[in-house]
Write a protein that binds this DNA or RNA. Structure first.
Lengths: 143, 143
DNA sequence: GAAATAATATGATAAAAATCATATTTAGGA
DNA sequence: TCCTAAATATGATTTTTATCATATTATTTC
């Protein structure tokens, strides 16, 4: 459904949302272990997330990654769009160039509703929302 | 969302549903062109679909691929399961081993409904249903 | 301002998915 | 029975994705 990269990115951003802030930064290697992602890989993903303003960072000693208030308010779909690209959600389900609402492909026809709903939900929930669910014991991050 | 292979498989199966039957078989290369998929690739995919009883075939002269009545009644999700595997739909959205309904991951939490709906729809519609929509002008297969 | 630390940029390698190629088997027709 | 046509099995190649490694740059602290 989502690529490994996207899953890793979501996990990293969630971890940062739960454990970091502007005065409490976390190094790439210290994020990698708890979310079970290769350190070098998560480092590369984090760089991309920093470039696109989804995560904040400071170099040098006492530096690291963290989530600012603005970062926390970004929507879940923003992370997915940066890593997997928008077409993943908006593109035709059969990759037909000429597929659209007026002339939908057969899959579009039957899946359009649930897909729209999916996009809506990802658009409505911020990273902070997901983190809050974890804090409240309504969602979990095991292993 | 779906892999190229899955998209190709759906397109091939739809094409066969619309243009073939037990007395009108179609060769791999004659399927490849209209659905815009590499001939050798679609041939390989068709073999897998035949092995799993989603498509029928006859070798030799006058042979080819076709959809039997049973083939046409298979559900869309069956094709996707064969090509992409079931985990694509049932697996945790963050690939967490211990994620489940009782202890859902944050993504599971917000996407579960639309995902369930998606699976339901794919389970309810047969290949024939999709083909019918095309015949009735309710769905299209451009390019 | 020098030393140490941590992100950044860049590129190399490995694994998986997609694509291509071909020898083998089966079925039909002369 | 022999030739041809078509699927099948198998494997090679290419492309993409995932993973690993390292030299460079920025920042803090002494």
């Amino acid at each position: 459904m989502f690529s490994n990269s996207s899953k890793y990115a979501i996990k990293a951003v969630l971890y940062l949302s739960l454990h970091s802030n502007s005065t409490r930064k976390i190094m790439a290697k210290d994020i990698a272990q708890p979310i079970n992602v290769p350190p070098a890989y998560i480092a590369k993903l984090l760089q991309e997330l920093v470039r696109t303003d989804l995560v904040s960072s400071v170099r040098g000693p006492k530096g690291g990654f963290f989530m600012s208030k603005e970062n926390n308010n970004q929507k879940v779909i923003d992370v997915l769009n940066v890593i997997d690209g928008e077409k993943k959600f908006t593109g035709c389900l059969l990759s037909l160039e000429a597929c659209n609402e007026e002339k939908p492909c057969p899959l579009h026809n039957i899946l359009s509703t649930s897909r729209q709903h999916m996009i809506k939900v990802l658009n409505e929930h911020s990273i902070a929302d997901l983190a809050l669910a974890v804090k409240n014991g309504k969602a979990y991050l095991p292993l």
